[in-house]
Each structure stands twice: as structure tokens, then as C-alpha cells.
Design a protein around this nucleic acid. Structure first.
Lengths: 336, 336
DNA sequence: CCACGGGTTTACAGCGCTGTACATTGAGGA
DNA sequence: TCCTCAATGTACAGCGCTGTAAACCCGTGG
């Protein structure tokens, strides 16, 4: 059964296609009785606008792409949800893309983008750095998230990771802890995020004249919780003394909590622990997890704001926005 | 700067638009030297096909919609990832939609679908039941997931929740546990999933002639881990005797583990616990969580398979597919 | 030598809607 | 009575690509 088109409605109602289009879009300056008659025909025929045709005519898709490393990573899943909800509020749909932190896939996000797929892209690169992104010749409106790249030519939204790491370490020191460890660095994969968090970690220890030694920076083979657990186990086994732990992210924190429990170390009594990302699971670990909390709603809102301005035609240098963070204080590193 | 179109390439190369289209699509029967000449012009001008125009011409979008209750729910996030990966393998892109388990939003997934947005939909309803979905007059290719609806007119993929619940309870009984509780029913919201899992829970207890009393079915105000924790706390406080726990999902299991730990009850020594969904966090709870494990890869593959057949024109009654499940055995309810 | 079939390329209409420019009409004010 | 402006509706080209049918040419077989 052929699809009902605008021209079909127009013919049945005895008006032009443009008039039907005006009614569909609630255009002013349509005589009330004509509007009613056209609407009755629309309802009667069950006419629904064809979005593909509309997009061709307007040059707009009404969609944005959201390219994340892993869509089921708790932090990315939560951030994606907020972006999707904000996009929906602003009348956009979200096409999800997963890069699995792979070079090729990240390059493809921008380089191989076809025309007429989306109006703009929100992209959290892991591999691609500032120069790589700056060098890509693309004209798709783009906003970056994360910490791996910050070209002056592209809009970018993030929290101040250095400051957030400093705040987290200060919180641990304020609890009277003196030997703060970092879990963990992935030896062959020191990403932008890891770097900035390490900077803040070191700044806070230096500022407090607290111990800062290489053995306090744990090493993991990968980014899994199990890797985090293994890094903490190894530190314990080799006799590293630490009474506090800043984890690179909540997954590492999960692993750390497990390794500490297995070793009979109580959290926070023996070791105070802070994670990062403040994902949902931070509230339900045992003990509940204190975590660096990026304002995900603000990340989403600002990213959408900047992207829609670019889609709307805004030109000019990249805008870099810092959104707030807090420390979500729970049992694993409580208030004093 | 205006966009490079097919017609621009054709004019520069001195051929018809169709010839350029043939080259772009690697159509056979193009003279090699002509193909090379056209390709050189394509590269030189930086031509990229316009997908919106292509879609209008072909009537296909190359996209499917994936409508889930919550995109950051661990189980839905993992399932979404598998579906997205399988779709990508089959040359489709995924548009993510979130219904938040709301009636209106679920109805909108099908009823308000505009033409030319996607070629088909994979939908996990929570509210809409079999008759509601059967009554919706829609012609968008559709595959359902989950347990809330199974109309004979629509393709549907799921695990056998009754059998899986039975298997889980049997596992607990095989450990020598005698009083198996269920955590939890959400009093005002007994979904299709909850029902089927309760059926299997009861069948296994009746089959083993084990205690089956209303006080063994705990009640939660909502689906949060905290609700799950509260339901277990209340049971303990009111003196309900139980030595095993089947949780409705991993979130409830998270809450249960916490409540048991808070009450000084050891898992699995004092209470053996099984969750459901086998999400990533099941491996990192303390103790690690035994969990009913739907074969998410199979769910994704079968759903995509059925959907693409519908998109390809397949007619006929709804096909209902059961995919396998296992019990992912970990510390919280180990092998005997 | 002719006919047929396959390789190769082109012409053109259509997919379905929107933006723009233009035509018409009526009301109000000078 | 005339002019101006706003309301209202329409005509039409274009957005950019694809499918289909047709034209042309060449090779092979009868």
C-alpha cells in the first residue's frame, strides 16, 4: 500500500502542497476553516511527514552523533544518557557510535563522515591528540569531551582534572592520611586523563610536603577493575606502605576495594579510598565509594549548547569550557 | 563553500551522473580507464555522497532505532552495546531511544514514528503488554525484547525466564540451602519479568518440596539497589529466616549484598545470593556475584537477524525465539 | 552478412518535502 | 477614491541521488 504523501493530502483537500505543509507546521496566516479542513484530511488519510524528504529539502537531519569509547562503560553510559536527554529536550535525536578507543575508529568519526548523516558530533577521543584532531580537515560541527585532545580550533568541554585530583588528595590528607597512593597507571597507555589526574595528585602532595615516591603510583596492565585489583595486590605484597588511595576511575576503585577486602584491610579505617566519575555503582559498593564527581548534567548541557551553536552557523576559534566538579563524599573516605 | 555534488563530479569528468554513481558503488561494467578517470575527479574534488538524498531515492535509511528503558542501566547498556556492534557488522547504524519505562514514551516508540527515520526498531517495553502492542497499527519492522509483551503478530526474542529462575533456585538448593527468598517484588509494579521469574522460583521450590511462604518474597518500593537493600533489611529486622536469596536483578543483588554485610551476615556462608543479568559489576562485588546470565550476544544476533529479515520484506506471523541462559557461578553462590 | 546478446554509458523521471517569490484580496487610513 | 500593507494561498524549482529504460557498440555465431 503506497505511502500517503503531502501531494495526496493537497489533492484531496483541494489546496497546494505548500498549504498542507503550512498546516503541518502550524504556520500562521492560514485561514482557520481552511486549516481545519486540511487537518481533517491529514487525520483521515493518516498522513505522516517523510523525514528523509524533509531533510533533503531543509539540509538538516535533526540528529547528532555521539561517539564514545564504550557505550556500556558506566561513566560513558551515564554521560550518554544525559546527553541523549538534553538532545531530546532540544529536539535532536542521538546516533550512538562506539570507538573502542581504537585509532582507526576514532579517525573515522571525523574523516569518513558522510554528508547528510548528522548535523554535528559530540566526540570523546582517547587516542587522538590535539594535533591529530587539529589537522583533520572536516566541516562537521564538533564538540570534544574528555582530556585527550584540546585543539584551539575546536570546542571542548571538560572538568578541570588537575584541580579535581588536587581536591581529592587534599580530602584524603585532611583525614590525617599521610601516604597517598594512585591506582593506577596503565603502563603502555597513559592517556590524557591519566596524565592530568597524576599532575593534580602530585601537586597536592608537594604542596602538603607529603611523601611522593614512585612506588606510590601503582601499575595496571589494563583499565579493567581486575587490573586495578591486581595493582593494589602487588603493592600490598611488596610491602608498599599507604593509608589512602586515589583511583583513576570508579572501575579501578571497584577493583581496589575488592583487593583491600581480600587482604583484610578495612576501608576507610586502614585505607581511605576515592574513585573518579561518581558512577551509580559508587553508591552501592561496600563500603560506599567516595568519588570525584564531574557535573555530568553540566557537561551534557554545555556540550549541546556549543554544538547547536555550531550547527546554527557560529564561526570562530574553539571554545574551551570547564564545568564544575565536586567530591561525592561517602563511606570510603568520609568527612573528618 | 557549496557542497560537492554528484552532478559536479559528472560535469568535471565529462560523464553522466549515473556513471559517477556507478563508480561510487563499484558497479561492474564500467570501463577501467573511465572508472579511473572518474575516481580521480572524485578524489580531487573531495566528493562525498549525500546520505539524505540517497535515502530519499532508495527509500532506505540504513538505520535502526533501539528503544530501551534506560540507556545507563548496566544490563541495558551491555545489551545495547552488543546490538550496536552487531548492527554495525551488518552495515546499520543505531539510533538510541530511552523510554524511562513510561507509558507515553513506550507508545510513542511505535505510534508516533515518522516515516523515513529508521528502517526498523528493536524495542524493550516495560509497560506495554501483549494486547497493547498487538493493537497498535504500525508498519515499521519491529522486534521485541524483554518479557512484558509477546504478541503472536510480532517477532520477539528472550530467554526462558521461568526456566532460568528454576535453574537458579535449584543451584541454591543444591548448596544445601533450604529457605530461599526472592528479592524483590516492587509492590505496585509487577512487570512481566518479575512475574516470570517468580513463576520459576515457585516451581523450583514446589518441585523440591521446599518452604514457599509469602514472607520469603521481599517487597521493595522501587527498582533501585537501595530499594533492594531496604527489602532485605526489613526481612532481617522482622525475623524472616532465609539462607539463600534469588534477586530479581543485579541491582537488587547489589543492594542485598550491602544489606547483608551491614547486618553482619556472611555471603555465601550465612546467605547464598544469586543475581540476574550477569552485568560487569557482578564480577567486582565483594564477594563476586553469582548471576543468571542471558546470552546477550545471542539476544543481539537473533534480534538483528529477525529485524533485517523484516526490513528485507519478510511477512508472516510473529516469530518467538528463546536464546540460551547460564548461571555464572561466582563466590556469592559457588559450586558445592 | 546479419542478428542477437552483452558490455557500457546516458537520459530522465521520481523519491517527498521546503523555501522563495509572486499573486490576490481585503481593510484601513489619508 | 486611492494607496499601502498585511493576510493568505499558490507555483515552481530545487535539495542530491537512484532505478529503469533506452541507445550504442562490439563480438560471435549461424
Amino acid at each position: 500500500m503506497p505511502r500517503v504523501r503531502l501531494v495526496d493530502v493537497a489533492q484531496r483537500a483541494g489546496v497546494s502542497m505548500k498549504t498542507v505543509s503550512n498546516v503541518v507546521h502550524n504556520h500562521p496566516h492560514v485561514a482557520p476553516e481552511l486549516r481545519a479542513r486540511v487537518q481533517a484530511v491529514i487525520d483521515d488519510l493518516g498522513y505522516r511527514p517523510n523525514l528523509t524528504a524533509r531533510r533533503l529539502a531543509t539540509g538538516r537531519t535533526g540528529m547528532i552523533a555521539l561517539a564514545m569509547p564504550e557505550i556500556d562503560h558506566p561513566y560513558f553510559a551515564e554521560l550518554s544518557r544525559r546527553i541523549a536527554e538534553e538532545a531530546t529536550r532540544r529536539g535532536y535525536r542521538v546516533l550512538i557510535e562506539q570507538t573502542l578507543s581504537q585509532d582507526d575508529a576514532e579517525h573515522a568519526v571525523l574523516r569518513d563522515r558522510e554528508e547528510g548523516l548528522v548535523d554535528g558530533v559530540i566526540f570523546q577521543p582517547v587516542r587522538m591528540g590535539t594535533l591529530e584532531i587539529a589537522r583533520l580537515d572536516h566541516d562537521t560541527p564538533l564538540v570534544l569531551l574528555g582530556e585527550s585532545a584540546s585543539p584551539v580550533t575546536t570546542d571542548h568541554v571538560m572538568i578541570d582534572n588537575v584541580a579535581a585530583a588536587r581536591d581529592a588528595v587534599r580530602h584524603l590528607l585532611a583525614l590525617g592520611r599521610t601516604r597517598v597512593a594512585f591506582a593506577a597507571v596503565v603502563a603502555d597507555d597513559i592517556t590524557g586523563s591519566t596524565n592530568r589526574r597524576l599532575v593534580g595528585y602530585q601537586e597536592a602532595l608537594v604542596e602538603a610536603d607529603a611523601p611522593l615516591t614512585p612506588d606510590l603510583v601503582f601499575s595496571s596492565p589494563d583499565f579493567s577493575p581486575e587490573g586495578g585489583a591486581a595493582s593494589v595486590r602487588r603493592a600490598i605484597d611488596t610491602g608498599v606502605a599507604f593509608d589512602a588511595l586515589l583511583c583513576r576511575d570508579d572501575k579501578f576503585a571497584l577493583g581496589a576495594l575488592k583487593a583491600l577486602a581480600d587482604a583484610g584491610l578495612r576501608v576507610p579505617e586502614d585505607v581511605a579510598v576515592i574513585g573518579w566519575d561518581d558512577t551509580q555503582l559508587a553508591s552501592y559498593t561496600s563500603p560506599t565509594l567516595t568519588s570525584v564527581s564531574p557535573d555530568k548534567t553540566a557537561l551534557a548541557e554545555v556540550a549541546l549548547e556549543l554544538l547547536l551553536e555550531r550547527i546554527g552557523g557560529h564561526q570562530g576559534p574553539g571554545r574551551h569550557r570547564i564545568v564544575p566538579h565536586t567530591i561525592a563524599v561517602r563511606q570510603s573516605a568520609p568527612y573528618r
